[in-house]
């Protein structure tokens, strides 16, 4: 019973990371394809300013997913990290390069250096979600079971590749939708059209990939395929599709506030639908939620900690997003860090 609750919380955390972290990966993707230093200057300026205050917070969802996994479902954690060794190791390296690249680009002035840091940030923004997606896709195929040793087959099969690509496309979609909204917020009219076009394009790519994905997973990941194409999961997927289409329409009318909500909704619903399709398995079809569950005392404590934390973290999180979307959060400029105020005179001239 309690393990089901923990599984739901885990799924919610995965969905939250897919949406929050995904948006930032998407911003990195658009940074990557923004073109040369001159042509990409304005999009990159927007990406920098939009991501800056929130990307670290968004990244914490991932840590949270890991912690719930190893505390709540130790065997699941052991199995995933043993079987999916390489993609997860590369994703970890990607996370370092991405965060460091982004953080170091900001205070750097020289163009050549900014390029290097920017490239590290942008390329790893593409690779990290791909590897994470590929690992998830590999799990869905049932190639992995407790005790499986690391092998390339576990994550380089058709389903893994298509899931990885879908993940990248979904992040690009989210990123573009949010950047459209940010462009309006920062009063950069030219960028509204720029990112809106990219949101539509990535939605188109997502649709194509989803169709290919259906064909690939039909035989390769039958359990999840059957789950997704029937019952509640199917309903959720359909709502997600409607939601994604609504996003496209809302963007056309530049109702960017609503578009953000529907875009997040569509991605989150797909994640939830996938979770439902896997029921009762954490890894189809070898590890169920109850088989993987840790000690029930710990699970109850984990839920208690989670409830307390939601109460504590919720309000500040809302505050952060509100302050951010209202443009209250601004980085310190060079002028703020200079001293032109009195008090700097030497004591013994």
């Amino acid at each position: 019973m309690i393990e089901d609750v923990v599984a739901w919380v885990l799924l919610a955390a995965v969905a939250a990371y897919a949406c929050a972290g995904g948006t930032d990966y998407g911003a990195g993707f658009w940074d990557l394809v923004a073109g040369g230093a001159e042509r990409g200057k304005r999009p990159r300026w927007l990406i920098d300013h939009a991501m800056e205050p929130v990307w670290e917070t968004n990244n914490v969802w991932l840590i949270f997913v890991l912690v719930i996994t190893w505390t709540g479902f130790p065997v699941l954690f052991q199995t995933i990290f043993s079987a999916m060794w390489l993609p997860l190791a590369l994703a970890a390296v990607g996370l370092v390069l991405r965060g460091a690249g982004f953080a170091l680009r900001k205070p750097t002035r020289r163009l050549a250096r900014r390029r290097v840091y920017g490239a590290a940030f942008a390329v790893s923004s593409l690779l990290t979600p791909f590897f994470l997606g590929a690992a998830v896709g590999g799990l869905a195929t049932g190639r992995v079971a407790p005790g499986t040793k690391a092998s390339a087959d576990a994550w380089s099969n058709g389903t893994s590749v298509i899931t990885g690509l879908l993940t990248v496309a979904a992040t690009a979609f989210l990123g573009a939708v949010f950047l459209t909204a940010d462009a309006r917020r920062f009063e950069a009219a030219d960028l509204v059209g720029y990112f809106r076009l990219r949101a539509w394009c990535s939605l188109g790519v997502l649709a194509v990939l989803a169709v290919v994905g259906l064909a690939v997973t039909h035989n390769d990941a039958p359990y999840v395929y059957d789950g997704l194409t029937s019952g509640v999961s199917l309903a959720l997927v359909l709502v997600a599709v409607v939601s994604a289409l609504a996003t496209a329409g809302l963007l056309y009318r530049t109702a960017t506030g609503w578009a953000r909500i529907t875009a997040v909704g569509s991605v989150a619903l797909v994640v939830v639908a996938w979770g439902l399709a896997q029921r009762p398995y954490l890894i189809p079809t070898s590890l169920t939620v109850s088989q993987a569950a840790g000690a029930s005392t710990t699970l109850r404590w984990l839920m208690l900690v989670t409830v307390v934390a939601v109460v504590l973290v919720g309000p500040p999180l809302v505050l952060l997003y509100r302050l951010d979307t209202r443009g209250v959060l601004q980085p310190l400029t060079e002028a703020d860090l200079r001293n032109t105020a009195p008090g700097r005179e030497p004591e013994n001239p």
Partner: peptide
């Protein structure tokens, strides 16, 4: 998580 949120508000709240 809480620290990351508050530090973002602190670092970007100066202005």
């Amino acid at each position: 998580f809480l620290e990351a949120i508050l530090i973002a508000i602190y670092l970007y709240g100066w202005r």
